[in-house]
Write a protein that binds this DNA or RNA. Structure first.
Length: 419
DNA sequence: ATTCCACAGGAATGAACGGAAC
DNA sequence: GTTCCGTTCATTCCTGTGGAAT
């Protein structure tokens, strides 16, 4: 048996594929960076900063460009004595209200010792704390709100730019940078917010396939040792990314996943085949995560759909999902939800991409309705559910059903043999 | 052109819950 | 403990909608 084995470590620096990696050069974003830089110029001049609004699909370099420029801005501002610049970056993913944004912002300014809780305070006192923090910080404060479209009310977007005018602030000059994946978010803003928030807007178009390949090559050359990553694998990653609206983030994740699989399997090159495997693995993870985040009723609705699918009853309208779902709910010992609410769960499933929907209209004979189909490999969904069902009490009901084995009903055992 | 089906999905409202402050 | 407060998940009631039937 050999004592020494050849080092098959394929990564030189795996972190180069991570989201927070900052490359020295951003590819294909020259005009956007130029616009962005111009919009930030007042900061260096010591003037009241512009509010800037960035929009473009996910993974087109909005956040990367922001990190890049903010880093330079902070460094360059330090050379002028009369500029005191603070940049706060906040990702609004998972934050749905202005209140939550405000609490997170307060916490950004405070040190670990006196962080505030994200619930419990009256709204006004959270804003008061925020003004206090901003003012004691003083100088120019740039607040970057990433994924700001997750917000369901825009009160903070109204309050922040006006805080100075309203006399809440005396020392600080506030500038807001809003980053949105969703262009329609801009249109949905109330007019008063829109006029103050969108002083400068910069559009980030999707990357084309060529730019994606260039980006992937740039990162791969840092991340992997020479000769590990094959050209065809990079092209395939880029092709998947280009298909999903020029998303570099997704392509990079895929590249990393393929690399991880190669490392696990002790292979020393990353081939197209591994990229495909990586795609499956990511897909699986996405589904699992989505299912884990569902409520008990969400699981029951999904399970009802899964059994219907396995019996070839799909596509199925919500009306016909309901009896199956109700049976499951009763078996699990809980009251079934009212149809309106069940439809909410169905549309949540479509949002997760687990279920697909087609709208149909039979006119006077049948009206409008939606038909649902499970859009994922059934076994994949079931196995993902098995990991989570136990915690919600569905598991015991499944066991019951397996025992009774009555009539048309289907049990999890039935899925195992299916392809 | 008008009627009308059967659902989609918005809006108002409330119960339950975790946290802060007194 | 009690009283606020914001969030989440639910119910109830309602208006909107596209195209087949008349």
């Amino acid at each position: 048996m050999a004592i020494f084995e050849r080092d098959t470590e394929i990564y030189r620096d795996r972190d180069a594929l991570r989201e927070d990696y900052q490359p020295e050069e951003l590819i294909g974003r020259d005009t956007e960076l130029e616009q962005y830089k111009t919009a930030l110029q007042p900061v260096i001049n010591g003037e009241q900063p512009n509010n800037i609004f960035l929009y473009g699909k996910t993974g087109v370099g909005k956040t990367a460009a922001t990190r890049f420029l903010m880093e330079h801005l902070e460094a360059d501002a330090a050379r002028y004595d009369d500029i005191d610049l603070t940049v706060v970056l906040l990702n609004c993913d998972g934050l749905s209200s202005s209140y939550q944004i405000a609490t997170r912002l307060v916490n950004e300014f405070r040190d670990d010792a006196d962080q505030i809780s994200t619930t419990g305070y009256p709204r006004a006192s959270v804003y008061d704390m925020l003004w206090q923090e901003l003012d004691s910080c003083g100088g120019t404060v740039l607040i970057v709100l990433d994924e700001v479209d997750h917000l369901e009310d825009d009160s903070i977007l109204y309050q922040l730019p006006r805080a100075r005018a309203n006399g809440n602030l005396s020392n600080a000059k506030i500038g807001i940078v809003g980053i949105s994946n969703d262009f329609s978010f801009r249109e949905e803003l109330s007019p008063k917010v829109k006029s103050s928030l969108v002083e400068e807007e910069i559009h980030f178009p999707a990357y084309d396939a060529g730019e994606l390949i260039e980006i992937l090559q740039q990162r791969a050359s840092v991340a992997f040792h020479d000769g590990v990553m094959t050209d065809s694998a990079i092209k395939l990653c880029a092709a998947y990314g280009a298909k999903d609206a020029g998303d570099a983030r997704q392509s990079l994740d895929l590249l990393m996943k393929a690399g991880d699989i190669a490392r696990e399997e002790d292979t020393d090159t990353v081939s197209e085949d591994l990229v495909r495997k990586g795609r499956d693995a990511l897909e699986r993870g996405r589904i699992q995560e989505g299912i884990a985040g569902l409520t008990q009723h969400g699981h029951l609705v999904l399970y009802a759909l899964v059994t219907l699918e396995s019996e070839g009853e799909t596509p199925v309208r919500s009306r016909d999902v309901r009896p199956r779902y109700s049976t499951f709910a009763k078996k699990a010992g809980i009251d079934p939800l009212v149809p309106r609410r069940m439809r909410d769960h169905l549309s949540e499933l479509t949002m997760l991409g687990i279920v697909s929907v087609t709208e149909r209209n039979e006119g006077r004979r049948g009206g409008t309705y939606r038909e649902y189909t499970v859009d994922m490999d059934l076994e994949l969904v079931v196995s993902a559910m098995e990991d989570t069902v136990e915690t919600v009490g569905l598991h015991s009901s499944l066991a019951d059903r397996a025992g009774t084995g009555s009539g048309t009903e289907t049990t999890i055992a039935d899925f195992d043999g299916r392809t």
